[in-house]
Amino acid sequence: MKRVQFSSPYLPYLFIAPQMAIIFVFFYWPSVQAIQSSFYLEDPFGFGSTFVGLSNYSDALGSVQYQSIARFTLLFTVLVTFLSLGIGMLLAVKADAVLKGSSTYKTLLIWVYAIAPPVAGLMGMMFFDQHIGPLVKLAAFFGWDMKVGLNYNDTAIAMIIVSVWKQIPYNFIFILSGLQGIPVSIREAAAIDCRSGMRRFWTMTLPLLAPTAFFLLIINMTYSLFDTFGVIDVMVKDKAANNPITLVYKVYMDGFRGNDLGGSSAQSVILMIVVFVLTIFQFRFIERRVHYN
């Protein structure tokens, strides 16, 4: 690694100070606050708080409702991560085959995809609009009366489709640029060594794409766990009653709708621990098997 010399030993710290300040204000400080308040029972009307130890945690983990939400979150995360990665990869591989060499076309395509996610999200929501949504109409055509926001399964399916739909462009860009980063001569050597394109994909392309895929796996899991909040909010519209929601949405419901700050804080701490464990697991066990050039 290249060593850079600074004239003053404090200068580097000065450079990272703004970033550290942001991390402190928006991450460490709220985290500490959350951990602290997870041990208290907050009075809903703001008249002080009582120390309750771990009972917020035991309440959350012991509740049947919390457990079923956790199960749904797991299913949701796995499905959204693998579907959006899988479809993004399929599209990227197809695009890559067409794009060989023609760089103007490539730039154009990536440019379109780069501005897409928010637009795609909006479109996804409209697909399932009860009145104008074409997918709802399509379902009706097949005799399926889709009631997004009212029926548990219908809402779950719509949530997963829109979340996947929103994330595909992002995965597409990264995988496509990863594919374009594989040296042409390696592909050609493989073409001489292996006739089957499918086999080449599994034995050559995918392993060489592993660093990108590993990065995307983490990003997509984080996305499914946290960034899908907006999608869920639009579909559920605060009426969680009979609808599927994820753990993050439950934190929000309990904290801001139910005014149970202590319980909601305990749930966020649980989520924090889950993410922490997941990240460590991924870096320890998956990254080791990933080949970095």
């Binding site: 040296p183 001569s185 390696i186 050609e188 050597a189 493989a190 073409a191 001489i192 060594d193 292996c194 006739r195 034995t203 050559m204 392993p207 060489l208 592993a210 080949h291 050039n293």
Partner: peptide, 27 residues
């Protein structure tokens, strides 16, 4: 290309970076 019964040696070698030397030869 795979059916032409030829083998090619490239300028930059084009070795498969994720495979050991043995696997490169055996692929």
């Amino acid at each position: 290309p795979a059916d032409r019964d030829i083998a090619m040696v490239f300028q930059n070698y084009a070795l498969y970076p994720h495979m050991s030397v043995y696997e490169n030869l055996a692929y």
